[in-house]
């Protein structure tokens, strides 16, 4: 749903899409600029117990309590969320949430022509949630379908696989 609608809406005059880029564990990811509300310096995250595994905790964003999600845990990337420097606040599943990131680069325009389907070489839980790979001048950028990645059903599905893998 979000792919077609969101994609069409984001399509610029010259066939470009706008993405906010951020880094986690050395990989550059991109999300549609329209779903991002703001980027804040990572505040102290209060751990929330017994919530789904990929929820790191909650933060206080000017008086509103928001969950912070951890892509590291969601995609089993390894590493430590404490290394994150920023939190990207965005619309997710119709609600507000934050994602801990190691660093934020700028907003970029990516020509649709530069977006390719994920290569078969990429494996792991995250492959289901990759909309495409964009070739930027110096690096590759993974474009994520976050609504799908944090769909409760999908979380249950991949979390189950998680345990089998251990």
């Amino acid at each position: 749903m979000s792919e077609s609608e969101g994609g069409a809406k984001l399509l610029g005059d010259d066939g470009e899409l706008q993405f906010v880029l951020f880094e986690i564990e050395g990989v550059t990811y991109g999300v549609e600029v329209e779903r991002v509300l703001e980027i804040v310096l990572r505040p102290e995250v209060s751990r929330v117990p017994s919530a789904v595994d990929c929820v790191e905790g909650v933060i206080n964003l000017r008086g509103t309590v928001l969950p912070v999600l951890d892509l590291r845990r969601r995609f089993r990337l390894g590493g430590d969320a404490a290394r994150a420097t920023h939190v990207v606040i965005l619309q997710l599943q119709g609600a507000l949430a934050g994602i801990s990131v190691d660093g934020v680069s700028q907003v970029v325009r990516i020509p649709v022509a530069a977006i390719e389907p994920p290569p078969a070489a990429i494996t792991g839980p995250q492959v289901r949630y990759i909309e495409g790979i964009a070739k930027l001048e110096t690096k590759l950028c993974v474009l994520l379908d976050l609504d799908r990645a944090f769909d409760p059903g999908e979380i249950a599905l991949t979390a189950g696989g998680d345990q089998d893998g251990r």
Binding site: P49, T64, A95, L96, F150
Partner: peptide, 15 residues
């Protein structure tokens, strides 16, 4: 409340 994304967390009424 924890917001719509988390919804109800067992054992906690909120923050």
């Amino acid at each position: 409340s924890f917001g719509d994304f988390l919804g109800a967390v067992p054992g906690l009424t909120g923050a």
